[in-house]
Amino acid sequence: MMTDMSMSDIAAHQRADHSHDGDPRIRAENVSVFYGNKKAIDDVSIDIDQDNVTAFIGPSGCGKSTFLRTLNRMNDTIASARVEGRITLDGEDIYSSGMDVVQLRARVGMVFQKPNPFPKSIFDNVAYGPRIHGLATSKSELEGIVERSLKRAGLWDEVKDRLADSGTALSGGQQQRLCIARAIAVDPEVILMDEPCSALDPIATAKIEELIHELRGRYAIVIVTHNMQQAARVSQRTAFFHLGHLVEYGDTSAIFTNPTETRTKDYITGRYG
């Protein structure tokens, strides 16, 4: 029934419908990234769709996080960074002069390696984005968004009686799920995760991985990970980066069991990296 859906829900449904018509959610074409004169990413082209979790793997310093950051223009914050090539979100060039970067980062949310909740209450952490983007017209609507986001992030039952407590008082794993709740509160289309479990213990890591499974299909998800077992567990598509190049991209099972490139095979079997 229409009455149960907010405007943001309707918009999200329309976007979701669009994403299943065979077009990728994000398309990168011939993307190179420079820091000053140093080329960190060299001519990378990749399609990212909504139905699969995509993992970026590769040794440290291979460019996977740098490339991830091009997908919501986080590299804009680095003065020496320059991006060449074309990246589109739903067919729209995200580096065009008309692109509102604040709006873009709501549509393409980011979860960082180290949980970074705001020094505010749990409630205000999640309510922050919907407030600044005007997604709620009343207090009760805002409360509904916060509750729904915390439920989707698998955190509601643990925090529902302490929403006024500081987000920074939670455990590391809870903080990371709070950051995921904060990202999904603005109805994003894409969630980028930059090694979201590297600072977490195995139990918290398992919860985040479970959460990624649950969110799959609702959002296009890209995860950078050093942990190949994790990539194998959570993703359906895997991209292997090496020295700024995208060496191989395909179904996760094929990449891990039958890679076509020697460099991929050497990395997967532990010969380097």
Rank of each mutant, 00 (worst) to 15 (best):
R162W: 04
Y128S: 11
D23L: 14
P130S: 08
A40E: 03
K265S: 14
R177A: 01
E195D: 05
T137M: 03
L150V: 03
D165W: 01
A127P: 02
R15W: 07
G129I: 04
E210H: 15
L89W: 11
Y128W: 10
R148P: 00
S138F: 12
H133D: 05
D251L: 15
E248C: 04
A204S: 15
E141G: 09
P202M: 06
G250Y: 06
N227F: 02
S171K: 13
I26Q: 01
T205Q: 08
R131W: 04
I10K: 14
G167D: 07
V126G: 04
G134E: 07
M74S: 11
D90S: 13
P130W: 10
T269K: 13
S8I: 14
L215M: 11
N37T: 14
I57P: 02
L89N: 10
I132P: 07
T88C: 03
A239C: 14
T262R: 15
A206G: 10
S96N: 03
V186K: 12
I87P: 01
D93P: 01
S32E: 06
Y249F: 15
L89V: 06
R107M: 12
D251S: 14
D194W: 03
H213P: 06
R216Y: 10
T66V: 13
L104Y: 13
E158T: 04
R27Q: 12
I212Q: 02
S32M: 03
A40I: 03
Q175H: 06
E84C: 00
K120E: 10
H20A: 12
H213G: 13
I223C: 11
K64I: 05
I87S: 07
Y95P: 05
V33N: 10
F256E: 05
A153C: 01
K151Y: 12
S171N: 08
M228Q: 12
T262P: 14
R162H: 08
A79N: 13
L150Q: 06
K160N: 12
F112R: 04
R82T: 13
L178G: 02
A127F: 02
N125I: 10
R271A: 12
A239D: 07
S65A: 04
R162F: 05
H13G: 11
A169R: 14
D157I: 00
G85C: 00
M7T: 15
S121E: 01
A239S: 12
Q230D: 09
E92G: 08
R182V: 01
S8V: 15
V222E: 01
N72W: 05
D23T: 15
N125V: 08
V44Q: 06
S65C: 11
L178K: 08
L246M: 10
E158K: 11
G270A: 05
D47V: 08
I122F: 08
H18N: 06
P202Q: 11
I212T: 06
L142G: 00
D161Y: 00
L243D: 15
A220Y: 08
T88G: 05
Q174P: 01
P119V: 12
A204D: 09
G154P: 03
M74Y: 04
A204W: 08
R107P: 00
S140M: 04
S235W: 07
P196M: 10
I221N: 02
D165T: 09
G217D: 03
A183K: 07
E261G: 13
P24L: 09
M2G: 14
R216N: 11
V190R: 04
K139H: 13
I145C: 09
Q176V: 09
Q50S: 12
A254D: 13
I87N: 05
R271K: 15
N75F: 05
